[in-house]
């Protein structure tokens, strides 16, 4: 899978590049508008991460260009301006998703994967870790073909951790993704622990572990 990151902030670009490469994507980058235009004209990408505010142009113009070139690249608009207008404008003009800065790396993976999944498998992709299979769109979970009943939040946690398989997912990232933005201010994220405990119990037969990484978050991995 080939991903293009259009981002003028070098450190931001570097972070995104590193984390996506760890997910085994081929990552290319453009740090300004003209380089980006050049790249999208000459190559096809599976997904483009597009910053709106570029020193020499507006990211939204690139969206329009992609449209006139009849390109099918998936686009996720990345913006420091978490404004509803920008979001609506982006989504109405061919963007597939909108991600506001600052975001967690785990959230970036989740968005990229969701976009690619929709693009290539029309939503019917099975995700598998060991003997555990989940169908994101149908919200089905089974271990060796045996169905496991998870509630909405348990399923969301599992899907998020599986999307970020073998990666560290911080508690904050998990809480924001599953419980939404509004939970952010509430006490500590200790309440996540009880959900993880329930999930582990239900997944006893699965060949995977959900490991707590002290003070920071969780990591889902194979049992070797």
């Amino acid at each position: 899978m080939k991903i293009l990151i259009v981002e003028d902030e070098p450190q931001m670009l570097e972070n995104m590049k590193q984390t996506l490469e760890l997910e085994h994507y081929t990552v290319e980058s453009a740090s300004d508008y003209s380089v980006a235009v050049n790249k999208i004209s000459n190559y096809d990408y599976d997904c483009i991460l597009l910053d709106i505010n570029l020193p020499d142009g507006n990211g939204f113009d690139l969206l329009t260009k992609l449209k006139t070139m009849k390109k099918a690249d998936a686009v996720i608009v990345v913006s420091a301006k978490n404004s509803l207008d920008d979001k609506l404008f982006g989504l109405n003009n061919g963007a597939d998703d909108y991600l506001a800065k600052p975001f967690h790396m785990a959230e970036l993976h989740a968005r990229v994967k969701a976009v690619l999944r929709r693009k290539y498998f029309e939503g019917n992709k099975l995700m598998q870790v060991g003997n555990l299979q989940i169908e994101p769109e149908n919200r089905n979970t089974n271990i060796d073909g045996e169905e496991i009943v998870l509630n909405r939040k348990e399923f969301d946690i599992l899907l998020y951790l599986m999307t970020n398989k073998s990666r560290l997912v911080t508690k904050a990232a998990l809480a924001e993704h599953v419980w939404g933005d509004h939970i952010d201010q509430a006490d500590s994220f200790d309440f996540i622990y009880s959900q993880i405990k329930n999930l582990r119990k239900k997944l006893e037969k699965a060949t995977l572990t959900i490991e707590a990484v002290y003070g920071i978050g969780y990591k889902l991995d194979f049992v070797k």
Binding site: E9, N15, K101, P102, L168, T170, G215, I216
Partner: peptide
């Protein structure tokens, strides 16, 4: 927003490097 994003993401990537001790992880 951008410097915050950079800092958070840097630390997230940093904490994934397995050679950190528990104490160091706690600080991160």
């Amino acid at each position: 927003q951008t410097p915050l994003a950079i800092s958070i993401n840097k630390l997230e990537l940093f904490s994934e490097k397995n050679d950190l001790t528990e104490e160091q992880l706690k600080d991160v």
